[in-house]
C-alpha cells in the first residue's frame, strides 16, 4: 500500500515537473530579438493619401516594413499577401491595433499616392503606403540597407528593378529587430510580432 502511494506520488511529481519545464520553455524558448543598431531610423515621405507622413508617428506600435514597387508581379504581391494574412490573424486576436504594415515604394514614377492607395487597399485597408521623390526614397532605402536598381528593358516588356527583398520588423521604439527574407511564413511573422507586443 505504502509502496503504491510512493509510486503514485512520484508519478504525479514527475508529470508536474514536466508541465512546469514545458511552460518554462514555452515562455523563454524564444530568445529576445536583438536590436539592429546599424539600420533604421525615421522616414518622412508622402503617404498613400498624398500627405506628409513620418514613421515617428508609428512609435508605440510594432511595424512591418517592406520596400517594393506595385508593378512587381511575383515577389511583392506574394510578400504583401503573406503580410496581409499575418495582419488578419493578429486582427482576429485583437492585436492589430498595435501593429502597422508599411509599404515603401521606390517607384514614385508609377506609384502615385492614389495608385498606392488602390494597390494596398486590396490587401488591407489599414496598410500604409509611402513614397516620394527618387532621392528621398533612395535615402530611405540606404537607411534600411535596402537596395534597388532600375533595370533597362533587359529584353522584357517594361522597366523593372533589381532589388533586395527584406521585410523589416520594427519595434515600438522604431528600432529594427529582425529582417525577414522575402516571402516570410505568416506564422513566423506573427510569433515575432507578438514577442515585441
Amino acid at each position: 500500500m505504502f509502496q503504491r502511494l510512493a509510486v503514485l506520488a512520484t508519478a504525479v511529481i514527475l508529470v508536474l515537473a514536466g508541465v512546469l519545464l514545458y511552460l518554462q520553455l514555452e515562455n523563454n524558448g524564444r530568445e529576445e530579438l536583438p536590436v539592429n543598431e546599424r539600420l533604421g531610423g525615421e522616414l518622412v515621405l508622402t503617404d498613400h493619401r498624398g500627405e506628409t507622413f513620418s514613421t515617428a508617428e508609428l512609435h508605440g506600435n510594432v511595424v512591418l516594413m517592406f520596400f517594393g514597387f506595385t508593378n512587381c508581379p511575383d515577389y511583392c504581391p506574394a510578400t504583401m499577401a503573406r503580410l496581409a494574412q499575418a495582419y488578419q490573424e493578429l486582427e482576429q486576436a485583437g492585436e492589430a491595433d498595435r501593429v502597422d504594415v508599411v509599404f515603401v515604394s521606390f517607384d514614385p514614377e508609377r506609384d502615385t499616392p492614389e495608385h498606392l492607395r488602390e494597390y494596398l487597399g486590396w490587401f488591407h485597408d489599414d496598410f500604409i503606403g509611402l513614397t516620394g521623390p527618387v532621392e528621398e526614397v533612395e535615402q530611405a532605402a540606404r537607411q534600411y540597407g535596402a537596395v534597388f536598381m532600375r533595370q533597362g528593358a533587359d529584353d522584357a516588356e517594361e522597366y523593372d528593378f533589381a532589388h533586395s527583398d527584406y521585410v523589416y520588423l520594427i519595434d515600438d521604439q522604431g528600432r529594427v529587430r529582425k529582417l525577414f527574407q522575402a516571402n516570410p511564413e505568416p506564422e513566423e511573422v506573427i510569433a515575432d510580432v507578438r514577442s515585441l507586443l
Binding site: N71, P73, P77, A78, Y119, G121, W122, E157, E158
Partner: peptide, 12 residues
C-alpha cells in the same frame, strides 16, 4: 494565376 489588385497591369 496570382490575383493582384485591379490597378496592377501585370501578374505572374
Amino acid at each position: 494565376l496570382r490575383a493582384v489588385p485591379p490597378v496592377s497591369s501585370s501578374t505572374a
